[in-house]
Design a protein around this nucleic acid. Structure first.
Lengths: 148, 148
DNA sequence: TATTGTTATACTCTATAACTATA
DNA sequence: TATAGTTATAGAGTATAACAATA
């Protein structure tokens, strides 16, 4: 079943991933800890982050998160009970429901963002300003390639 | 409640995080998808990854994962039932239990690793070899600063 | 007494399946 | 018929609390 290593990723790519994956895990761990301090899962953080400048319908939100609509229905139900988001009937489609942040939810994610910057600062602070800029540039290029 | 922006993270750092966090999310999403294809959660992937070259006791494993020992006890119970890991009494401490990969577990994580390289290749492939190396270097510096 | 591990219990996250209301 | 959303149900992941065995 093992193919010859013809079209496989070269060694250089492997080493990059060996740095990228741990950095991603550390980043997630930090966000997760901040979430825990605020009683929020990573999913809920993402959800609030997505809604921070948008009002979306349930299905759209599910698509953004890569989750099933029933799952998001439950997430929203719990977040709504906590006063972080609200539902409103959609103007054009009477089947649809718009989801949006309450002011409390908006304040929470602003606070989270500040905490995130503080908590992740030790990670970025090890690099000079020029290096940070270079790193940011490379990461953005990767992201663009991924999404575009 | 909003402090003056005296000792807060400077704009340069914020922009880097605005690239780092999405890259981390994409990386996690890819790993998560690969995990799902193999019926593995991110936690289980990490757990197997940690055990790939080690034999650890329950508490040590919990510490590595940043989880409570009871949680890991459950994870191990399920992984053991699937034949991915095994338990053995520790030689020196009769209270302790050593956890280690079965050959099946070892094969699985080797397969996952290959899948991960393939799946994340589109992310890294957008950069030249020199840029990949530079990026890897910067990420490693951040990691060293974080752990060291 | 303190530590290692397990079990009991509860809540969140997630999916599959089945349902209602609207398009 | 197809789509938007909810509810029912079930399993994994996580934590707190209580326990047994060993140090």
């Amino acid at each position: 079943m093992s193919t010859q290593k013809q079209n496989e990723t070269p060694a250089a790519g492997e080493s990059l991933l060996d740095a990228l994956v741990p950095v991603a895990f550390v980043t997630m761990a930090v966000l997760n800890r901040i979430g825990a301090e605020n009683d929020l899962s990573l999913t809920l953080i993402r959800l609030l982050g997505i809604l921070h400048d948008r009002r979306l319908r349930m299905v759209e939100l599910a698509h953004h998160l890569g989750l099933e609509k029933q799952t998001v229905s439950g997430l929203i139900a719990r977040a709504e009970k906590r006063g972080l988001v609200a539902r409103a009937p959609n103007a054009e489609d009477r089947r649809a429901v718009d989801i949006f942040l309450t002011s409390e939810g908006a304040e929470l994610i602003a606070r989270l963002r500040a905490q995130g910057h503080q908590a992740l600062a030790p990670l970025t602070r090890s690099l000079s300003a020029a290096e940070q800029q270079r790193l940011q540039e490379l990461l953005e290029r990767m992201l663009d390639a991924w999404h575009g």
